[in-house]
């Protein structure tokens, strides 16, 4: 088992990349949240207990355009419902007790589930999940404190191109899934549907409806598109 845990550790380059990316996200998101909240303590508390940058941003976005508190909360929850889907996916691949299962659920994010699901054994899935979780927490917290306390020095983080870093990282993480035909179909349909619905559907729902991509891909026989 310990052998599987060691071999399941993602490459250091991947972990450093995830850490740097979450540092960038921590800075960019928490500069915005701090501007909206106006309190360093609240910004840091929200970063820790919500642990969903997109939920915080969805809440702020709805409030900024004059939406009600309830509408903003619903937007934040809907955006986060993808973590429930990812947790369900992860839950089928792990064999651990309730405590570790609950801890894993509360830490479900796109990169750690994406990397973990590419492992072949339950212990490998769990090991990869926690390695990536550690890397992203390190980056997220350093970025959060930097954003809150040094945000005014950094200025507009998007001028540094940091808004392109997260989608690039996510793409790299699911690259292996895209090299298999069912995963490729799921991604194209899911991503395409989300893009098509973005201008017309309520915030967060396009991501939930992207689940259709996985359903469509069920009809695709498992066959490699390119050698991995």
């Amino acid at each position: 088992m310990s052998e599987a845990r060691v071999s399941a550790r993602p490459e250091w380059g991947t972990l450093i990349g995830i850490c740097l990316t979450f540092f960038a996200i921590g800075v960019t998101v928490n500069v915005l949240v701090y501007e909206h909240v106006g309190s360093a303590v609240k910004t840091i508390a929200a970063a820790g207990i919500v642990l969903s940058a997109t939920s915080e941003l969805a809440y702020i976005a709805v409030r900024d355009v004059g939406g009600s508190v309830l509408a903003a909360l619903i937007a934040g929850w809907v955006v986060a419902s993808r973590f429930g889907l990812l947790a369900a996916s992860l839950g089928t691949r792990i064999k651990v007790g309730h405590f570790q299962r609950s801890c894993a659920a509360l830490n479900c994010l796109d990169p750690n589930v994406g990397v973990a699901m590419q492992q072949t054994t339950p212990s490998g899935v769990m090991a990869a999940f926690w390695w990536v979780t550690g890397a992203l927490h390190l980056g997220w917290w350093c970025g959060t404190f930097t954003g809150v306390f040094l945000g005014n020095i950094i200025g507009d983080a998007n001028k540094l191109g940091l808004d392109a870093v997260f989608p690039a990282l996510l793409l790299a993480i699911i690259a292996n899934l895209l090299r298999q035909r069912p995963g490729f179909v799921a991604a194209i349909v899911g991503g395409g549907l989300c893009a098509a619905l973005l201008p017309i559907a309520p915030a967060g729902t396009p991501i939930i409806l992207s689940l259709t991509g996985a359903i469509v891909a069920l009809k695709v026989p498992e066959q490699k598109v390119a050698p991995t």
């Binding site: 997109t54 976005a61 993808r82 889907l85 990812l86 369900a88 996916s89 089928t92 691949r93 796109d110 589930v113 994406g114 699901m117 808004d163 392109a164 997260f166 989608p167 996510l170 793409l171 993480i173 699911i174 899934l177 895209l178 069912p182 995963g183 490729f184 799921a186 991604a187 194209i188 349909v189 899911g190 991503g191 395409g192 549907l193 989300c194 893009a195 973005l198 201008p199 396009p206 991501i207 992207s210 689940l211 259709t212 991509g213 996985a214 359903i215 891909a217 069920l218």
Partner: peptide, 24 residues
């Protein structure tokens, strides 16, 4: 289906982060 969900959902997040500007 569970093994295909990450590809579909993460791709949707990528699409949103890459192309969305507000509601357009």
């Amino acid at each position: 289906l569970g093994s295909l969900i990450p590809a579909a959902v993460v791709s949707a997040v990528i699409a949103q982060l890459t192309f969305a500007s507000g509601k357009s």
